[in-house]
Nucleic acid binder design. Structure first.
Lengths: 102, 102
DNA sequence: TTATTATATGATTGTATAACTATTCAGTAA
DNA sequence: TTACTGAATAGTTATACAATCATATAATAA
């Protein structure tokens, strides 16, 4: 069991980073993408098929999510596999969903 | 202990709602506001002083957060008190912060 | 009544960015 | 080499929205 550290007041740069993280999760299309890769890593093409958007659009979202460390990126041959880098991301979505359902 | 319900694939409207919730948390100024009210409910003026923004700007953010159910709103005399409606909101921020710190 | 304080709202502006189309790059095979 | 497939990127457009200024509403006091 980890110790409970009293909340410190976050500021400036930290707030920006946290906000950026939340903002990345704040697009339905990106949430769809996260759902598409939550079980296992998938190629861009698979994700495109799963979410029903253009390849260009999906590719940009994937780049943003990977740059933020939310997704992992691994190239194999001519395919690129994207996957969740942290299960916490799914947990966040579940928590919010549960909160909304009430 | 609540039962672990297997994740269902969310869609359409639900994704929009979850995304909206995250998007609301995706602004540094709103995170500042959340920090200002996390201990106890505070008046708009107190919040304005705490976060260093204009009254109009803070008021608009408060309206959005309250409309989304993230903040509670209680009027007393000529003052309006805003407070966190669910401790989960803070937990979300802590989780993301912890994840970023690594 | 008028004045003052606390909050909300309307109108505007600037900026960020999602989605689209077309193109380019990279890897593999003929 | 050329052809094909998978993925990324450049350029454009349209929309969302944060911040600002000015104004309006509400509650209290003089």
């Amino acid at each position: 069991m980890s110790k409970r550290i009293p909340a410190r007041r976050l500021q400036g740069r930290e707030l920006e980073q946290i906000a950026t993280h939340f903002r990345l999760l704040g697009e339905p299309m990106r949430l769809k993408i996260l759902q598409a890769v939550c079980g296992e890593s998938r190629t861009v093409n698979d994700i495109v098929s799963a979410v029903g958007a253009t390849q260009a659009n999906v590719s940009k979202h994937l780049s943003l999510l990977a740059a933020a460390g939310i997704l992992t990126r691994k190239k194999e041959g001519q395919c690129v596999y994207y996957g969740l880098s942290d299960p916490l991301t799914l947990k966040l979505c579940e928590l919010v969903h549960a909160q909304l359902v009430g």
